[in-house]
């Protein structure tokens, strides 16, 4: 998945959605580094997924100017769906690519009523539409933990211009018993 993603170009106006276990945290780091090597990048982390130290090590593999590159990665974390909305509302459209890490993590929280989650997500997506006018928006997701929240996942996927879904592990082969 890494190679495919890294070989992609993300034009302004597009929204790419990547869905994998752990919100594709392993796959997204090389992409963040690639974007940061070229300029500023904004990361809005909705599930505390940003792996700061591995990300720094990854930068070091590409350049000795670790400090310089890591100064170009702007990070904000949201721990609730309301905070995610606040982050998006406070971000103004610019030419800086925006990565929404594990966008739905707090929306999957069972203490947040589904209707409220749907309404907040709608507002988040409207906001992300305005953000992607000048620069791409890349969203990572975790599959919903319960079928009840599947509708949220679906709404985001439907909004995507490009969608990557991690293949589900197939069941292990069954050993037939002799008797």
């Amino acid at each position: 998945m890494n190679d495919i993603m890294l070989s992609q170009s993300f034009p302004a106006g597009s929204m790419a959605v990547i869905c994998a276990t752990h919100a594709a945290a392993d796959h997204i780091s090389p992409l963040i580094v690639r974007l940061a090597l070229g300029g500023t990048v904004q990361v809005l982390d909705g599930g505390n997924r940003l792996q700061a130290y591995p990300l720094t090590r990854l930068i070091r593999r590409h350049t000795p100017a670790v400090e310089e590159v890591s100064q170009r990665i702007y990070v904000r974390r949201a721990f609730t769906a309301y905070q995610m909305l606040a982050l998006l509302e406070e971000s103004s459209p610019s030419s800086v690519p925006c990565i929404l890490l594990d966008l739905l993590a707090s929306f999957y929280d069972e203490t947040l009523p589904l209707k409220e989650a749907q309404s907040l997500l709608k507002r988040c997506l409207e906001r992300s539409d305005s953000l992607r006018v000048l620069a791409p928006v890349i969203v990572t997701l975790t599959p919903p933990p319960t079928p009840r929240r599947y509708s949220l996942f679906e709404v985001v996927c439907q909004r995507a211009d490009a969608l990557w879904l991690e293949p589900q592990p197939s069941a292990p082969p069954v050993q037939f018993s002799l008797f």
């Binding site: 700061a52 990070v75 904000r76 949201a78 609730t80 309301y82 905070q83 406070e90």
Partner: peptide
């Protein structure tokens, strides 16, 4: 009724130093 204050923006290196 709900928490609204979000984290202020900062760079990766600032985050590593602070968190």
């Amino acid at each position: 009724a709900v928490k609204q204050q979000a984290e202020s923006p900062r760079t990766l290196s600032d985050l590593i130093r602070a968190d």
